[in-house]
Design a protein around this nucleic acid. Structure first.
Length: 933
RNA sequence: GCCCGGGUGGUGGAACUGGUAGACACGCAGGACUUAAAAUCCUGUGGCUUCGCGGCUGUACGGGUUCAAGUCCCGUCCCGGGUACCA
């Protein structure tokens, strides 16, 4: 009986995280602890996470990394007196759900909602302070009604170069009516409706045009880039080719300059800004017309950023898609050219850009005329020239461009050098400085000019002659906004007789109809096109059957959180004025260009149209790194039917690799007991294999990759939380390393954090569950410790250096422990600063300490500056840069005080050993260094 | 290919603006407690060398700048992300 009581008492005193976490979760939910409203009396702060796509694999330990960081920051800001908005939602339209629907026939809405529920319960386990009453799902018609509304705003707007902003399309029509030139060169009111539409279409921010897609004839569908591997479909390995299709686009290029300028006003990592700048790719150059030999009426217009190199041109290159390519090809070459163009259709843009070591191309047999020298220049077609950039044609300068150089070498074309004092016989001279030479004709001479002056002279000359002009170009293209898919927002557009009509706000949302099959229609159209009673409208009208891409909903979601239940507006002006920009946005660097550029553009459009009063959505952005999962491989020989342990001395170069699902791998990274047998039961292709071991173990090669369902290396946070608790999980994720760095997941290290919280618990709570710290006066040392920790933690949170925060909590507690500190005055401060990291245990301590209110309603403790400074500093003293000893000096000591003491120090005397001292370096508060011979 | 990151003990990582490399943890080794194990606590722990004091060496690799380099500069290698329809 006694025994039982003792055991019971012991159990009472243990840190029972599951009980504590359950209790406070329920308590906070009942008291709507995290609901926020627009409190004008407090300064606001908006902390946002990039919302997840709810995949079928569930949340893995990589997702919460950023969420935990932002949660800590949100809770910290709250302690600092801010009214903090911290919402969460789901990016719920997407390809995987549709693919799953094709395979299983289950409606994507159903699977998506199941996945969302799973994600939500997983997120709720981790103790985030999200205001769930503001949750959004992009696939919810109540949400996508407004995504469609945004589309209509883009559709019904144009970019005015006069006012340099987006304006309603009516102002454009008014200008046309007043006589603004149109491309039909007829008065506006004499144009047909179709002509008017075509003309306006050239201005709309959302417009229809043609572009290439990945078409797979065998699957009868359009494929996403990542569904294409080496020119073949990932599923089935069928041939994929590029096909021209009519699609919706967003005219983001009109915002290129403002997207560049806006970067100066936001706090993003410099590297990320650089990526965006490169993506936008602003370049200054010229368009120059080249006459074609034997063809009177046509010209080839090239874009070049290096007009200064015009005398270095020795050939011309057209993109395979260039409209004139076939026309100029001479009959003897037409078969060869047609074959080459067909080959290019099977090549992805990525392949075309990257595989330039062995550059391909074909001669058309045609020649251009050099505008200044009248020299004949052969015209080639090559895939390294892309149709979407510039004019789709280049003047090739092998002496100044490495791709042109490679091409010239391969096709035996002359390399003309025009740079003074350079040798271009082996590689191109690509520096942006130098003097031009060998560049003279009857018309112009560039000899002796530097590159910039030569550029200007050439541009002036071509402009004077009317054969070209100065031109600013962007690498960025207008954003493709159509998908031939079911699971996306339908366009609020319908047609009749080739004319487009837009729905109005009252008609929204245009909801997705039920379909019987999610399979592609085989003709490249979306599955929606097969539903006749949805497509066909009364009066002979037909709906648009494409849907919007995944980034549509995510381009504006940060605004919907501000007013999520508003049914008459996407967000009231009052709310968007109060919450304003996102103050801190945390998410993966993989969205560096796509999502971030689109949402920045949409924000600017809404700003231009007066719906919001800021033109950058995200004030500060932090990119979290990826948490990789472990994958284990073994090598095998198919013919010999042998598999080899990694610790055998084998030559892996001719062997095949096999990834083993992680459940077969033991903690020692070998096959589990009987693992080989059960492995072969699943992967029967290895049934008759010999598994060759070394030292009686079969070990694997390890690598770190993305966690994915397919590799079966997903680590589920639920399991970790069940075993260690949410507080430990949160702290451990932060303890792993700097937030923005990629890192591998390894559960082994979690014991350190777990032990820390257990030690803290048993230090503060006795066997009977009573709170130990008392009213005793803290000692000087403990006051130093806690004040320094408060300072360090708040400095580090502001920098989002959360891994060092965890270390400092440990260091602080280790110090308090060795000081035998029992003062509740100290510990209460400690619990407050700990609460953003480990909210449950902090609240439990707070409660045990007899406090009635919540630890989250406290104020962040003040720092008493007097405890931060030391009177003395332990100077490292080095001789010739190598530290030899430490000597303590007063912090105000100057070199004159210090020098004699240092020189008479025994250790230092030994190292100086009578040699003369050339220099005595004293850096106050840092170091002393003696330079001797 | 191009653009952007990263590379520090057996492992995750720390190191302010160039100023004691390896904080804080994990793991491992030894010890205490226990009949035993687990848990917990204590000690040690980059490598080489030395009985020890100590010495040498060391931040992917090769150079450079500096009194002083993980940190700055030049070159190389490897790994990750993006490359426009994965999200």
């Amino acid at each position: 009986m006694l025994c039982i009581i003792i055991i019971f008492a012991n159990r009472m005193s243990e840190y029972n995280f599951s009980e504590i976490e359950k209790k406070w979760s329920e308590h906070w939910q009942c008291h709507s602890q995290y609901a926020v409203s627009e409190e004008l009396s407090k300064p606001k702060y908006y902390v946002l996470d990039m919302f997840p796509y709810p995949s079928g694999a569930g949340l893995h330990v990589g997702h919460p990394l950023g969420y935990i960081a932002s949660d800590i920051f949100a809770r910290y800001k709250r302690l600092k007196g801010f009214n903090v908005l911290h919402p969460m939602g789901f990016d719920a339209f997407g390809l995987p759900a549709e693919q799953y629907a094709i395979e299983t026939g289950k409606h994507p809405a159903e699977t998506t909602n199941n996945n969302i529920e799973r994600y939500k319960s997983q997120l709720k386990n981790i103790g985030f302070c999200y205001d769930w009453s503001r949750e959004i799902k992009t696939c919810d018609p109540k949400y996508y009604k407004w995504t469609q509304w945004f589309f209509l705003k883009l559709y019904n707007s144009w970019y005015s170069d006069d006012t340099n902003k987006a304006e309603p399309i009516e102002s454009l029509i008014l200008q046309f009516e007043k006589g603004k030139k149109n491309s039909y060169e007829k008065p506006w009111n004499e144009l047909t409706e179709l002509e008017k539409q075509n003309e306006i279409s050239k201005y709309r921010l959302a417009y229809k045009s043609e572009s290439y897609i990945n078409w797979c004839q065998a699957l009868g569908t359009v494929l996403a880039n990542d569904e294409v591997v080496n020119g073949l479909s990932e599923r089935g390995g069928h041939l994929v080719e590029r096909k021209l299709m009519s699609q919706w686009f967003l005219r983001i290029t009109k915002y290129a300059d403002r997207l560049l300028q806006g970067l100066e006003t936001v706090d993003f990592a410099e590297s990320l800004k650089e990526m965006q700048r490169n993506w936008i790719g602003r370049s200054e150059g010229a368009e120059i017309d080249f006459k074609i030999d034997l063809l009177q009426d046509d010209i080839i217009k090239v874009y070049t950023t290096r007009p200064d190199t015009i005398f270095g041109v020795s050939f011309m290159v057209l993109a395979p898609e260039h409209a004139i390519a076939e026309k100029i090809t001479i009959p003897q070459k037409s078969k060869e050219v047609a074959d080459y163009i067909n080959y290019c259709k099977t090549r992805s843009e990525l392949e075309r850009k990257s595989e330039i070591k062995d550059i391909s191309g074909v001669f058309t047999g045609a020649y251009c005329i050099h505008p200044f020298s009248n020299k004949k220049l052969p015209v080639y077609i090559s895939e390294y020239v892309l149709t979407g950039y510039g004019t789709g044609a280049i003047m090739a300068v092998p002496c100044g461009d490495s791709r042109d150089h490679t091409f010239a070498k391969k096709f035996g074309i002359e390399i003309i050098n025009i740079f003074e004092n350079t040798d271009v016989s082996f590689q191109a001279y690509e520096e942006k400085s130098g003097i031009i030479t060998n560049s003279k004709s009857e018309i112009i001479s560039l000899n002796g000019l530097n590159i910039n002056d030569a550029k200007n002279k050439v541009i002036c000359e071509v402009e004077k002659r009317g054969i070209g002009c100065r031109k600013i170009n962007f690498r960025m293209r207008d954003a493709g906004f159509s998908r031939q898919r079911y699971w996306g927002e339908p366009f609020p557009i319908y047609y009749k007789n080739g004319l487009e009509y837009a729905y109005s706000l009252e008609d929204l949302p245009i909801t997705l109809p039920q379909v019987n099959s999610y399979k592609p229609t085989g003709d490249g159209k979306s599955p929606l096109s097969a539903i006749e009673n949805w497509v066909n409208l009364p009066g002979g009208f037909e709906r648009e059957t494409d849907t919007m891409p995944g980034y549509a909903g995510s381009s504006w979601y940060y605004l919907r959180y501000l007013d999520p239940h508003n049914e008459s507006e996407f967000c009231s002006k009052k709310n968007s004025d109060y919450w304003n920009q996102v103050d801190l946005y945390i998410g993966g660097a993989e969205h560096a260009v796509g999502h971030l550029l689109y949402s920045r553009m949409w924000c600017k459009v809404m700003f231009d149209l007066g719906y919001i009063s800021f033109d950058e959505p995200f004030k500060k952005l932090v990119n979290q790194g990826m948490i990789g999962g472990e994958v284990f491989y073994f090598y095998y020989n198919q013919e010999k039917r042998e598999a080899y342990s990694n610790n055998l001395p084998i030559d892996k170069s001719n062997l095949l690799q096999f990834k083993v699902p992680n459940e077969y791998v033991s903690d020692e990274e070998t096959f589990e007991e009987n693992g080989i047998t059960s492995f072969c039961n699943e992967f029967i292709q290895f049934k008759d294999f010999k598994f060759l071991k070394s030292n009686n173990t079969f070990t694997f090669e390890k690598a770190i990759t993305k966690m994915s369902k397919r590799l079966r290396n997903v680590v589920n946070p639920d399991e970790i939380i069940a075993k260690y608790g949410a507080d430990t999980f949160r702290m451990y994720e932060m303890f792993l390393g700097p937030i923005e760095m990629d890192k591998p997941w390894n559960t082994k290290g979690i014991d350190g954090v777990s032990r820390f919280l257990k030690r803290l618990w048993s230090y503060c709570i006795d066997e009977n569950g009573k709170y130990i710290p008392d009213e005793s006066k803290p000692c000087e040392e403990s006051l130093k410790t806690i004040n320094r920790t408060i300072k360090k933690i708040s400095d580090d949170i502001e920098k989002l250096s959360l891994n060092t925060c965890i270390s400092n909590f440990m260091i602080c507690f280790n110090e308090l422990q060795s000081q035998k500190c029992k003062s509740t005055e100290i510990f209460e401060k400690y619990f407050i600063i700990l609460s953003p990291f480990a909210p449950f245990i902090a609240q439990e301590f707070w409660h045990k300490a007899g406090k009635q209110d919540s630890v989250f309603n406290c104020e962040y403790p003040e720092i008493d500056e007097k405890y931060l400074l030391d009177d003395t500093f332990n100077y490292p003293v080095s001789v010739n840069g190598k530290t030899r000893t430490l000597i303590q000096f007063h912090k105000n000591a100057i070199q004159a005080d210090i020098e004699p003491i240092v020189l008479s120090d025994e250790k230092i005397k030994k190292w100086v050993d009578g040699k003369s001292i050339k220099k005595f370096i004293f850096v106050k508060g840092r170091i002393i260094n003696l330079v001797i011979e």
